[in-house]
Design a binder for these strands. Structure first.
Length: 139
DNA sequence: GCCAACGTTGGC
DNA sequence: GCCAACGTTGGC
């Protein structure tokens, strides 16, 4: 199973909102590199959810429940077939969020796409990176 | 709020 | 098809 990381601004849609909703359409991705990754997701793939702009930390895990399908881009000046979204549901929150500072200070995690390309909102996570984040997040 | 990095756009 | 200008993102 592939692993991913998805960013969100908690003021727009936080991990808590995802838990409260029990799942969501992960829409609004407007970047071609990120779209490529969304399209590659399979049902059962797991994702780290990262909060940007506020506390800047990885807060929880989600699972893909539906592969990429068209994002209708409601109210936007975008053709409805240009962008895609996936459905995800919450798996569990990390006991201890893994902050960006921790990631940057870590020899292995500092090589993550999250750090290398900070503007990419959806990016792949390597198996050893995944294991490391979970180990740190569980204290 | 500032600024660097990066993606996108548009003129040539 | 290249590249400069511009807009947006996101860390600080």
């Amino acid at each position: 199973m592939a692993k991913w990381l998805m960013k969100t601004e908690p003021s727009t849609y936080s991990y808590d909102d995802l838990v409260k909703d029990g799942g969501t359409h992960w829409n609004g991705v407007r970047n071609y590199a990120a779209r490529l990754h969304l399209s590659a997701m399979k049902v059962g793939d797991q994702c780290l959810i990262y909060h940007s702009m506020g506390p800047k930390e990885i807060v929880g895990i989600a699972e893909v429940t539906r592969t990429a399908y068209p994002d209708p881009c409601e109210g936007e000046d975008e053709p409805a077939d240009r962008w895609v979204m996936v459905d995800i549901k919450p798996v569990r929150a990390l006991k201890k969020p893994v902050t960006l500072a921790t990631v940057k200070a870590h020899a292995l995690l500092s090589k993550m796409e999250l750090v290398r390309q900070s503007r990419l909102s959806v990016c792949p996570v390597k198996p050893d990176e995944w294991k490391t984040v979970l180990a740190l997040g569980n204290g």
